[in-house]
Computed example of a mutant assay.
Amino acid sequence: MTTRRQFIEKASLSTMAVTLPFASTFSSSVRKQEDKVLRVAIMGLGSYGTRVAEAMKDCKRAKLVGVISGTPSKIEAWKEKYGIPAKNCYNYENYHQIKDNPDIDAVYVITPNSLHKPHSIGVARAGKHVICEKPMALNAEEGREMIQACQEAGVHLLVGYRMHFETKTLEVIRRQRAGEFGKTLFFQGLSGFMIGDPKQWRLNRALAGGGAMMDIGIYSINGARYMLGEEPIWVTAQEVKTDPVKFKQGVDETITFQMGFPSGAVASCLSTYSMNNLDKFFLNGTKGFAEMQPSTGYGPIQARTNQGPIEAEHITHQTTQMDEMAAIILDGKSPVVPVDGEEGLRDLVIVDAIYEAVRTGARISLI
């Protein structure tokens, strides 16, 4: 006769026999998922490409495995420095051949702004995920073409918004969303520096698509959106140019611009290539404020609120960015603030409106 205790013991052993292999398989699958590494090629081996490559040395989920460059000497130097195999090295004429290279998952496009669209679309058509430096394109029309191309190719399109993963920035965003500052009514964004070499591509309209706004001003546009948690409904803007020789037609030196939001909040921002000591965000609400200075530099970021300083360990932004982007692509992770093509497009729509406001002197509606 089977006692109740014997029945329970047998049932327990039977259950273990069924569940333990499953638990082991589940644990193994989770571990394998976390062990996946995004294999990245960098396209454009200039100063920022080098910064990303150095930061990726400390990544856990992303690895530099390839390069694309128009300069043979740079390719040779990177091969040696980063241990990149020759089969993963391409130039701007043959990079489409990455389609046949299973060792590359994604390409980080860090070429001049005017090349973002053709290079990103070329990468997408080769079947590789696209990470594109900001601004995503020269204008909203180009941005839409990039989004469509990546959708058709079935690949991710991510934009290099490193601040969307920065710890202190995310803490300010958390507090704003939690209502700790009350109703947020005002944002100030100051973005600029004194630019050097007048012959660099950033001062070439054909390559940059503009001037300071396309390089540094976009930080204030993007910052206003994530700090206020809203999308603007109108913009106004004014341009000031003190050096028309250095800043030729179509290359903006300084633009001040304003944005209005559905809640009634307003943003007042400055984009310039003629002043240092800026890089400041200020958010004001009915119950408190947040101030960040520096707010978007390579770090460490300094942040404080009406309750005091925000403390957090500084981690190289590009290291965190690439690990988080790997999690988005490999695991389907959803970031607190988006970094996809649609996010890049929203900024481009505003940039287009700012330039239109400068040209016409009118208030430009965004709805």
Score class of each variant (00 low, 15 high):
residue 330 L to M: 13
residue 234 W to N: 10
residue 30 V to I: 07
residue 145 E to S: 07
residue 67 V to Q: 03
residue 357 A to N: 10
residue 269 C to Y: 03
residue 37 V to N: 02
residue 245 V to R: 14
residue 343 E to R: 13
residue 73 S to L: 08
residue 61 R to M: 11
residue 250 G to F: 01
residue 136 M to W: 04
residue 202 R to A: 09
residue 55 A to E: 12
residue 324 E to T: 05
residue 37 V to S: 05
residue 8 I to A: 07
residue 64 L to Q: 02
residue 252 D to P: 03
residue 93 E to T: 10
residue 49 G to W: 07
residue 181 F to R: 01
residue 5 R to S: 12
residue 171 E to L: 11
residue 302 Q to G: 02
residue 227 M to L: 11
residue 1 M to V: 13
residue 133 E to N: 15
residue 145 E to W: 00
residue 135 P to Q: 10
residue 95 Y to A: 06
residue 61 R to P: 00
residue 94 N to T: 14
residue 38 L to I: 12
residue 66 G to T: 09
residue 353 A to G: 09
residue 215 D to F: 04
residue 339 V to I: 15
residue 307 Q to G: 02
residue 149 A to G: 04
residue 233 I to V: 14
residue 179 G to Q: 06
residue 1 M to F: 13
residue 87 K to W: 08
residue 308 G to I: 11
residue 284 N to Q: 13
residue 236 T to Y: 11
residue 196 G to P: 02
residue 185 L to Y: 04
residue 144 R to P: 00
residue 22 F to L: 14
residue 310 I to F: 01
residue 233 I to E: 13
residue 301 I to Y: 01
residue 79 K to C: 10
residue 285 G to M: 12
residue 79 K to P: 01
residue 190 L to Q: 07
residue 314 H to K: 07
residue 147 I to K: 01
residue 345 L to T: 08
residue 94 N to H: 08
